[in-house]
């Protein structure tokens, strides 16, 4: 197997606040292989988006990386200087954000957005050439080339999100971090976008970190799935075995509490309780207050995140 694109080791991210420090990502270790779609799921506040921003080194202050290592193509990202970090962004690592309505500068045309990205990293490309590349790009994304000089407000939500993907494709990034890319899109547009993403992924062998709370989107697109709960990684595995037989009680609860339009069985499984307050996480396993299979040990000792089957890891005392 080739070297992974990203290897995260024991990453911690802290948010100091007035009433204390919140550890938003707590001791997460994870690899992303070349050409795979890794789905990172969890509920709001579980730390999944923070993890994504940490990879780009774009944490909003006062957020900071408090420990661990992140290797990108073999280089430790956390040891890079400002300039090296900047060059990595946009060129090797690209990002697609949740709300395409607010993610594009309203004063820049579609062409400006793309040309700017290309020329920032390839200053030798002439403006004209960059523009031609941009036209080719949006054509491939299913946007008519006449719209190249449109402003963001003239585009629909779906088209804007395609432009965001265009920014990622412009320089053949090694890793695309897509943070809730379809959450603000309507159902049909969402499906169209996922379809496009799947096509592009296969065509260009893209590596995508797909961060979402939408279990359906992960099921549609991901090759592997990582589940986060209260800043911790709780389960990791290939998409089929993970959906067929989730190991962690949280994963199981999460999957069963999602309405499925195809199922005839009308009963949703209901998970009791709410995710813990990260200022004051429960001792032991963080899921234990909500867990139906809780044991004494769970209340006291934190379960390690370890491989229990080949390619399958879980943090739970049951295994």
């Amino acid at each position: 197997m080739s070297e992974p694109v990203v290897e995260i080791r024991h990453l911690n991210v802290d948010y100091p606040t007035r009433i204390g420090v919140v550890r938003a990502v707590d001791d997460v270790s994870l690899t992303i292989e070349r050409g795979e779609v890794l789905g990172l799921v969890g509920e709001s506040g579980c730390g999944k988006s923070t993890l994504g921003m940490a990879l780009l080194r774009l944490l909003r202050p006062p957020g900071r990386i408090a420990g661990g290592q992140v290797f990108f193509n073999g280089r430790n990202l956390l040891e890079l200087g400002e300039e090296e970090k900047r060059l990595l962004r946009g060129e090797r690592i690209s990002m697609v954000f949740q709300d395409p309505m607010t993610c594009l500068n309203p004063l820049q045309r579609v062409s400006d957005h793309l040309v700017e990205t290309i020329r920032t990293h390839r200053p030798e490309v002439s403006k004209k050439e960059a523009r031609a590349q941009a036209a080719e790009l949006i054509d491939r994304l299913g946007i008519m080339t006449e719209r190249l000089d449109d402003y963001p407000h003239q585009l629909s939500g779906g088209m804007r999100q395609r432009v965001m993907i265009g920014l990622a494709l412009a320089l053949n990034a090694d890793l695309i971090i897509a943070d809730e890319p379809t959450t603000s899109l309507d159902v049909i547009v969402e499906a169209q976008f996922l379809e496009l993403l799947r096509e592009l992924q296969q065509q260009f062998n893209l590596t995508i970190l797909l961060i979402t709370h939408n279990i359906g989107v992960v099921a549609e697109l991901a090759d592997r799935v990582a589940v986060m709960y209260a800043a911790k990684l709780v389960e990791l595995g290939d998409v089929y075995p993970l959906f067929d037989a989730p190991l962690h009680p949280y994963t199981r609860g999460l999957l069963r509490s999602v309405p499925n339009i195809r199922l005839t069985d009308d009963d949703l499984e209901i998970m009791s309780g709410v995710p813990p307050d990260l200022y004051n996480p429960p001792p032991g396993c963080r899921f234990h207050p909500r867990c139906a299979q809780v044991m004494d040990r769970c209340r006291l000792e934190e379960p390690p995140f370890r491989e229990v089957q080949p390619g399958r890891s879980v943090a739970c005392w049951l295994y």
């Binding site: 780009l56 774009l58 900047r86 060059l87 990595l88 962004r89 946009g90 060129e91 690209s94 990002m95 954000f97 709300d99 607010t102 993610c103 594009l104 500068n105 309203p106 004063l107 820049q108 700017e116 990205t117 920032t120 990293h121 965001m164 920014l167």
Partner: peptide
């Protein structure tokens, strides 16, 4: 704004982000 984050994510320098993206808006 989110598009400032996008601008940083494009790999632009802080100067460019502030002058070309933030200031104009």
């Amino acid at each position: 704004e989110d598009y400032i984050r996008t601008a940083y994510a494009k790999g632009l320098s802080e100067r460019t982000v502030i002058i070309r993206h933030a200031l104009k808006n």
